[in-house]
Amino acid sequence: MATVKGTVRVHFKDGVLDPQGKTIHTALRQMGYDWVSSVRTGRLFEIEIDADDPSRAQDQLREISQKLLANPVIESFHVEVHS
């Protein structure tokens, strides 16, 4: 059995209000970084899985993302498997 590392990135869907991102954006502009035109927050999960079949790792991470890590009503996710 091999240990496979992966990351899952979860972020708000377009159109879903992200007041934290908006507040960070405002703060950055107040700090003088007026070239920042938008900030959206998200979440990063670093996950290790015991994989019988490393080629299935992508699907396994997708499954847990769909089930728990992301709420499909408001969030999208992106899975990456690191070899």
Binding site: L17, P19, N71, V73
Partner: peptide
């Protein structure tokens, strides 16, 4: 909402 017994989701208050 998380259990999908009713539709939608809850977000952080707009005012934070």
């Amino acid at each position: 909402l998380e259990a999908e017994l009713i539709p939608g989701a809850i977000l952080r208050n707009e005012s934070l």
